[in-house]
Design a protein around this nucleic acid. Structure first.
Lengths: 296, 296
DNA sequence: TTGAAAGCGGTACCAG
DNA sequence: CTGGTACCGCTTTCAA
């Protein structure tokens, strides 16, 4: 040990993984680590991993399917000991590849449960129901939904959750629009929305991160929140309390998701078959200052 | 190639790195990836790396020296092809270890230039001078500096830059205070400041991320920005335009830093000695809405 | 307990 | 160009 310190010996991790077969490194692939939602999950997963002597390497896909593909390939190439895939975009092929690879995997919000693949999903629909119900009670009739590209489109759970929920209340007008998952995207989407003929009484954002941009665009146009327009987010990222006005949103327990993800990856296969499972977490509705009675 | 696809063959990257000696993976260690400043640098570095067929693994230190140590060890263990260390905390031992390791390294804002170690630094002092000068012109006399723990303390360049610059203008009162590098930290520091006897006419924050929290605390106490108190940030992160009011700040060209870091790591050693270098980038002062004439 | 030897899955260099 | 072989540095197994 003295020699180890003296000679500055650093075991070659590549050789170690090669020889040992396993890798004591976990992988996490996220759509957008810039969005605090993903980062918070990453942070918790990493903390848990470190506590158990694992390292974790993160990869960002930027919502680009080809980047997802590349990241998955790299992770498999690295022979990571487990892989958490926290993304919105997903291709069925990948699920199969991952399954074949034999790497313990956990998905968030996408993909089926099978083989050694677990799935953690949030009951987005339930959160959306709370939001729409609340807005309905406030007298809102024209609702706009701002999402990012992968939450809008034919196969999107989230857009469907919004549309179907609203459909239960007769007499509502709706509009949906998408841009990139950044404040800037929210701002642009909001601008486009307001430049159209549609006059929303409330704007529901797919997440808090984009809502930040919506708030700004509204402010610049002299529209007051919530007097003129109400705004809601989703996720309850830390920043949602640091913007103005503070966002009404739905809390998603990211720390719980991080813990669950880690735990899923650590489960040892029993009798050769691994204990994949599906976990559903419920969001919690939070009223703050960005919502109020409908104005018109 | 047909077979490769059919059999789902994924070359073992560990074996490849072991055999090849080099790693086609770059490492980046940052103090706080949650702070968009660091993330933006990471993003650019990663994009450049991908364009050249490199992967990059990121590690977060949370400003904890022991975590820095761990990350460096892991990176050396992985035998990364290059390492960018974008942190505030630094221990001289590490510089030496890294130097011995033979890994091309680039530091940001810390450490000396020597061996194969390059250094990119931002002229923080110059930015601070602009800010203080501007505030002085507006009649501010009581200046508070809010930083995070590693920017305050005996060996901090940044605190010194603030103090020494202010000292040039007679009759100014100052106060410095630190908390964690998050909006929440900025908020707490601001609260503590206002609970003291000191009544700042302007609050200078070490970065925009913390300034976000300062803005909120001020708002909750009914203090108007900039009418009652002026606030400045540093970095010009995207969010600095999405808060309210928009922050007066100093722009640090993070994309340039990312490109420079990548480029430094890619330089081939010439005649056995590697071309380490030092690069200084200048911040650019940006006036927005969070600053105005002193009130009292 | 200690030491020697056989891989792990590639790369690189050699002769054919 | 093709095929063969010697490692890369560590883990694991098996003898001694």
């Amino acid at each position: 040990m003295k020699a180890v310190a003296d000679l500055k010996y650093y075991p070659n991790l590549n050789a170690r993984s090669l020889a040992g077969g396993r890798s004591r490194t976990l992988g996490i692939i996220a759509s957008n680590l810039e969005n605090p939602f993903f980062f918070d999950v990453f942070r918790v997963l990493e903390a848990d991993a470190h506590a158990q002597g694992y390292e974790v390497v993160a990869a960002n896909t930027d919502y680009r399917p080809e980047q997802l593909l590349r990241s998955v390939k790299t992770m498999i190439g690295r022979r990571v000991g487990g892989l958490a895939v926290i993304v919105s975009e997903m291709e069925p092929d990948l699920v199969r590849e991952l399954e074949q690879s034999g790497i313990p995997t956990v998905f968030y919000d996408v993909g089926p449960v099978r083989g050694q693949i677990s799935n953690i999903r949030v009951n987005y629909r339930r959160g959306m129901e709370r939001i729409v119900e609340y807005l309905h009670g406030l007298g809102h009739s024209r609702l706009a939904f701002i999402g990012h590209h992968s939450t809008l489109g034919p196969l999107s759970e989230r857009e469907k959750a919004f549309l179907e929920t609203v459909a239960r209340y007769p007499g509502k007008e709706t509009r949906t629009i998408a841009d990139v998952d950044r404040p800037e995207g929210g701002r642009r989407a909001c601008a486009e929305l307001l430049d159209s003929a549609f006059r929303p009484t409330a704007i529901l954002c797919v997440n808090d991160f984009m809502a930040l941009g919506v708030l700004r665009e509204l402010r610049e146009r002299g529209l007051r929140v919530p007097q003129d327009v109400s705004v809601t987010g989703f996720d309850n990222i830390g920043l949602s309390e640091y913007c103005w006005p503070a966002l009404t949103t739905a809390h998603i327990p990211r720390d719980r998701i991080g813990h669950l993800a880690f735990e899923s990856l650590m489960r040892e296969p029993v009798n050769g078959k691994s204990p994949a499972r599906e976990i559903v977490v419920d969001p919690e509705f939070l009223v703050r200052d960005s919502t109020g009675p409908a104005s018109s």
